[in-house]
């Protein structure tokens, strides 16, 4: 044996059930720690879920970036393979990235050869600087570079306002760009990367760990936290089908529990995105103005979604400005 057992394939339901319990505990714990900084110390403390098979996930709280959470509001993961380590989303700030690196180094001395930035959003990318000295390949969608060009300084400035410049770090541009599909080998462990068409953003990557049947859809799959639309609603519905065709046993979403049953989680997200799509299209056809639509479309879909009130209206605006040109 090479130090780990790959034992999940075809055992999704059971594994997801087990992890769900762990998540509940971690979720409560994580939030407790986030509340502590109100007493004065800006602690950035999260626990890491060891999912087995060399797979680790830091499950983030459903919050906006604050000094208290150091921008650590998206899930970050790493996979320790036989030969090397791959990081998926290095964190929401350089402070967050340094924390992740230290957690990796507590567990393995293997080289970190790949750091994947799944899309342009700051909660997924700004930790990359912490990994520069490890000299990994920084992997991004072919559209990530122009997206960084257009948005990087805006995100940087907003994040500096919240976290202070010392915590934010600088953006690291991808050193390897993926425009279609790529495979990475961590040592008898193939990770397949797909560059998606515009969906959540216009530069989304997903990863599939072929050895364990685990999908890393990043923000193409939101669980519990309301999905936020920043690319193309029609595209997202399309790319969701593409992910479903992989039929993964389980998934590590960009936001939500460390591990979920893919099919159920995607079905739930599709219910919301479909309601958003149908409602927005109806509003446009009926000549309902964008401001009225943002207040009414999909407004009844909030049950079970955290931050729904903060994002649904905005999602409608994004959907409306896309669909009104149809």
């Amino acid at each position: 044996m090479s130090g780990f057992d790959l034992q999940w394939v075809g055992n999704g339901r059971h594994a997801a059930g087990d992890v769900r319990f762990t998540r509940r505990e971690t979720f409560a714990l994580g939030l407790c720690m986030c509340c502590l900084p109100a007493h004065g110390s800006a602690a950035h403390t999260f626990s890491l879920n060891d999912l087995g098979n060399g797979l680790f996930v830091r499950e983030a709280p459903h919050e906006e970036a604050t000094l208290a959470n150091m921008g650590a509001i998206a899930n970050t993961c790493f996979i320790i393979g036989r030969d090397s380590v791959l990081v998926i989303d290095p964190g929401g700030s350089v402070t967050d990235g340094r924390w992740l690196l230290s957690e990796i180094r507590k567990r393995t001395a293997k080289p970190i050869r790949h750091v994947v930035m799944t899309h342009v959003h700051p909660d997924h990318c700004f930790g990359a600087e912490a990994f520069v000295d490890e000299q990994p390949e920084f992997i991004g969608h072919a559209a990530l570079r122009p997206a960084f060009d257009a948005r990087g300084s805006f995100y940087h400035q907003r994040l500096v306002e919240m976290l202070g410049p010392e915590n934010v770090g600088r953006l690291v541009y991808p050193t390897r760009e993926i425009s279609d599909v790529a495979e990475i080998d961590l040592g008898d462990r193939l990770i397949r990367i797909i560059a998606h068409g515009a969906a959540h953003t216009d530069c989304d990557l997903s990863l599939f760990d072929t050895s364990t049947g685990t999908l890393f859809p990043a923000d193409l799959l939101f669980v519990d936290r309301i999905p936020s639309l920043d690319g193309s609603l029609l595209g997202w519905l399309r790319e969701a089908k593409r992910l479903s065709a992989i039929a993964p046993a389980r998934a590590v979403p960009g936001h939500g529990p460390a591990m979920v049953d893919f099919e159920a989680a995607m079905a739930r997200q599709l219910r919301y995105l479909t309601a958003l799509h149908d409602g927005t299209r109806r509003a446009i056809a009926a000549g309902i103005a964008i401001n009225e639509a943002s207040r009414t479309v999909a407004a009844d879909q909030g049950e079970g979604w955290i931050l729904f009130e903060d994002y649904n209206g905005r999602n409608v605006i994004q959907a409306y400005k896309e669909l009104e040109w149809e």
């Binding site: 559209a143 122009p146 060009d149 257009a150 948005r151």
Partner: peptide, 12 residues
């Protein structure tokens, strides 16, 4: 005002 016009200038 400083928010980007689109995913990238070329797209925009």
């Amino acid at each position: 005002c400083s928010a980007p016009s689109g995913p990238s200038d070329v797209e925009a």
